[in-house]
């Protein structure tokens, strides 16, 4: 297994006092806790910090950790032969360090203290962020999640075990939707209940649509003549193209609602699709186009900024 320098993770000296360790942890927790931090990589950074603190705040665990000696971060190592007898177990266990993660090495200390009223240890809950496409949210999808979960072995030692969990996500998931998969987290030990798996759904950015709840927004570029004269257009929706009548005199920013063409609501109905008009002009005009615009400018008495004058008067 690879050595992890817990003192370095907390930014303290090896001889730091319990109070110094607590202060360092609190400072880093405020910076990286996933519930309060938006820093990139905050969650994994907090895991490192929390793992270090869980061991160093407990005198028994800290003594066991210190007995491993000081090593370079990430160095492959095995605990000394008598380490388990002195620090980890009751002396009679045949203990193997194969497949053990460093993070789980000290779990046996805490595990002894967390046995539930029924004598068992509950399995760990896991929370996994999952990104799905808007198309998947529209049709529903089946996720296949490959997870490495700590499970207690017969000695009560946590070991990482690979798991594949398949989950059918019905149509209608929205950004921020939370799902619970009961009993699909870490396995309980000695009668403890299995942990749960939580999925935190987010929607991938889409090249056309922006989602808010079950509603979708689509930019609808229109030429000046289409906006002024009105027209009928084919609009792409998640269920296929539909015809939309653009009323004459449509200005930029006008929202044209296509009822029920958004994301389905799993409890019935569906959100709406809003086509947001955007009047666009060609970046370069042909001679004939320029002449037509010049003729239009001369003939038109349209005053788009009349309100400037009225407000200023």
């Amino acid at each position: 297994m690879k050595y992890t320098d817990y003192y370095a993770a907390l930014g303290v000296e090896r001889g730091a006092s319990a109070d110094e360790i607590k202060k360092a942890y609190r400072r880093l927790a405020q910076k990286y806790h996933p519930d309060v931090s938006k820093e990139p990589g905050a969650e994994s950074k907090f895991k490192e910090v929390a793992e270090a603190y869980q061991t160093l705040k407990d005198p028994e665990k800290r003594a066991a950790y210190d007995a491993l000696g000081s090593r370079p971060q990430g160095e492959e190592f095995r605990p000394p032969p008598d380490w388990t007898r002195q620090h980890g177990g009751n002396g009679s266990e045949q203990f193997s360090f194969d497949d053990i993660d460093f993070a789980d090495l000290f779990s046996r200390f805490g595990a002894r203290g967390t046995q539930g009223a029924r004598g068992g240890m509950p399995g760990q809950d896991f929370e996994v962020p999952v990104e799905i496409s808007i198309e998947d949210a529209f049709r529903g999808t089946t996720l296949s999640l490959s997870l490495s979960m700590p499970e207690y072995d017969a000695n009560g030692q946590l070991r990482r075990v690979p798991h594949t969990v398949k989950a059918r996500i019905a149509a209608g998931a929205v950004d921020g939707q939370r799902l619970r998969l009961p009993g699909k987290g870490g396995k309980g030990f000695r009668g403890g209940r299995d942990g749960d798996l939580y999925l935190d759904i987010s929607l991938k950015p889409h090249r056309l649509y922006r989602a808010t709840g079950h509603d979708l927004y689509l930019d609808l570029p229109l030429s000046p003549s289409e906006a002024a004269l009105g027209t009928s257009l084919e609009i792409p929706t998640l269920a296929g193209a539909v015809s939309l009548k653009i009323p004459a005199g449509t200005s930029s920013g006008r929202k044209l609602r296509l009822s029920g063409r958004g994301l389905p609501n799993p409890r019935g109905g569906a959100g709406d699709l809003f086509a947001v008009a955007q009047i666009v002009v060609p970046s370069a005009l042909s001679d004939r186009e320029r002449e037509s615009y010049q003729r239009l400018a001369a003939d038109s008495n349209f005053e788009p900024r009349r309100h400037f004058r009225e407000e200023g008067a």
Binding site: T142, T164, V165, A167, Q177, R180, L181, P182, K184, L199
Partner: peptide, 27 residues
């Protein structure tokens, strides 16, 4: 463990009791 599993939507349409909340929240 390769079969599809039960998925519960944590939304306003589903209710949980205080007892369930104690079981699953850790509080």
């Amino acid at each position: 463990m390769n079969h599809e599993t039960e998925v519960l939507w944590l939304d306003e349409h589903r209710a949980v009791s205080l007892h369930e909340l104690v079981e699953i929240s850790g509080l």
